[in-house]
C-alpha cells in the first residue's frame, strides 16, 4: 500500500478513537470540551516516556530487559490511565460549572497542559521530542478502532448510556427521575479522556515526534468540530465526520493555505445550514435507518393532517 495513503488511514484511525470519546461526552452527554487535546497530550507524553525512556532506565538501574512491544502495551495503558486520572481531578473541579463556563475551564486546562509541557526539559520542552520508537501499526490501529466502536456502542446502549442521553436532553428532569447527573457526567468525561489518552499514545509512537504545539486549542477544536460535523448523538455520524474531516485537508493539500479557508467555511455552513450534522441523532444501520424513515414519514403525515385541519401545526 502507498505509504502516504497508509499514513492517512492510520491518522484517521487514531483520530477516530479520540473523536469517539468526545462523541460520548459531547454528542451523548451534552458537555462541550475545548481541552481534549490536553488529554491526548498526557497520553502521548506518558506513552513516550514508557517507550523511549523506561526500557533504558530498567536496563541500567535494574538490569531488566523490557521488550519494545511490552513497553508499548504498558505505554498505551499508562497513557490512558494518566489521562483518566487527570480528567477525574478536572471533573471534580469543573463539572459543577454551567454550559459555557465548563467549556472555558476545559480550554484553560488544555492550554495549561501545553504550557507546562513547554517547560519540562526532560520531555523536550517547547522544541519537542524526536525519534520515538515506531511501534504503532496500521492493523493495530484498525483493530483498536473496531474495539472502541464496539465499546462505545455497548456503552451508549446500556443503562449508563440511556441515562447520559437523559442528562443531555433535560438535566433537571433527569435529576428528578433519580439519575445521578454529576456521576454520569463524570463517567462520560473520564471515558472520553481515556479514549483521548489512547489516541495520544498511539500517535506518539506512530509519527515518532511530539511537540506541545501539536496539542493546542486548534487541535481540541478540530476534535469537537469532527463530532459536530458528523452529527451529535450518532456513532456512525462520528465515524463519517472523522473520516471526511481527516481526508478533506489531505485532498486539498495542493491548495496549501486555502484548504483551511475551505475548512473554516465548511464549519460555518454546516452550523448554519445543517446543525444536526451529517447524520445527527440516527445511526446508519438497517434498523436505525428504518427508524429514521418512520419518524420522517410520521412528521410528514402529521404536517399533512395539520394542513387539512386549517393550517394548524
Amino acid at each position: 500500500m502507498d505509504a502516504y495513503i497508509q499514513q492517512i488511514i492510520v491518522m484517521t484511525g487514531i483520530n477516530l478513537i479520540a473523536v469517539l470519546g468526545l462523541s460520548i461526552l459531547t454528542g451523548f452527554t451534552g458537555l462541550f470540551s475545548f481541552g481534549h487535546a490536553g488529554f491526548m497530550a498526557i497520553g502521548s507524553y506518558i506513552a513516550a516516556i514508557c517507550t523511549a525512556r523506561l526500557p533504558q532506565i530498567l536496563q541500567t538501574q535494574f538490569g531488566l530487559h523490557l521488550e519494545p512491544m511490552a513497553a508499548f502495551a504498558l505505554a498505551v495503558v499508562a497513557g490512558a490511565l494518566a489521562a483518566g486520572v487527570v480528567s477525574w481531578l478536572i471533573g471534580m473541579l469543573t463539572l459543577k460549572l454551567k454550559g459555557d463556563y465548563f467549556c472555558i475551564a476545559t480550554m484553560g486546562f488544555g492550554e495549561a497542559v501545553r504550557i507546562i509541557l513547554n517547560n519540562i526539559p526532560y520531555v523536550g520542552g517547547a522544541r519537542g521530542w524526536e525519534s520515538l520508537p515506531k511501534l504503532t501499526s496500521i492493523w493495530l490501529v484498525l483493530g483498536l478502532d473496531v474495539l472502541f466502536v464496539v465499546i462505545t456502542w455497548n456503552l451508549i446502549n446500556s443503562r449508563q448510556g440511556r441515562n447520559m442521553v437523559a442528562v443531555r436532553e433535560e438535566e433537571l428532569a433527569a435529576q428528578m427521575s433519580g439519575i445521578d447527573v454529576y456521576r454520569h457526567k463524570m463517567t462520560a468525561l473520564i471515558v472520553s479522556a481515556i479514549f483521548a489518552g489512547v489516541a495520544g499514545a498511539l500517535m506518539a509512537n506512530y509519527i515518532q515526534f511530539i511537540r506541545p504545539t501539536m496539542f493546542n486549542m486548534a487541535r481540541s477544536t478540530d476534535l469537537t468540530i469532527m463530532v459536530i460535523f458528523g452529527g451529535l448523538g450518532s456513532i456512525s455520524g462520528t465515524i463519517l465526520g472523522t473520516i471526511l474531516l481527516t481526508w478533506l485537508p489531505e485532498v486539498f493539500r495542493n491548495f496549501a493555505q486555502w484548504r483551511l479557508v475551505v475548512y473554516g467555511l465548511a464549519v460555518i455552513v454546516i452550523m448554519v445550514g445543517r446543525p444536526q450534522g451529517l447524520v445527527g441523532g440516527m445511526e446508519l444501520t438497517p434498523s436505525g435507518i428504518r427508524k429514521a424513515m418512520t419518524a420522517r414519514n410520521a412528521r410528514k403525515r402529521f404536517k399533512e393532517v395539520g394542513d387539512d385541519a386549517g393550517g394548524q401545526k
Binding site: F32, T224, V267, I268, M271, V272
Partner: peptide, 15 residues
C-alpha cells in the same frame, strides 16, 4: 453552535 460557528469564522478569517 454559536461558539463553534465563531471558531469556524476565526479559522476562515485567519487563513
Amino acid at each position: 453552535y454559536f461558539i463553534i460557528t465563531a471558531m469556524g469564522a476565526s479559522i476562515f478569517i485567519d487563513n
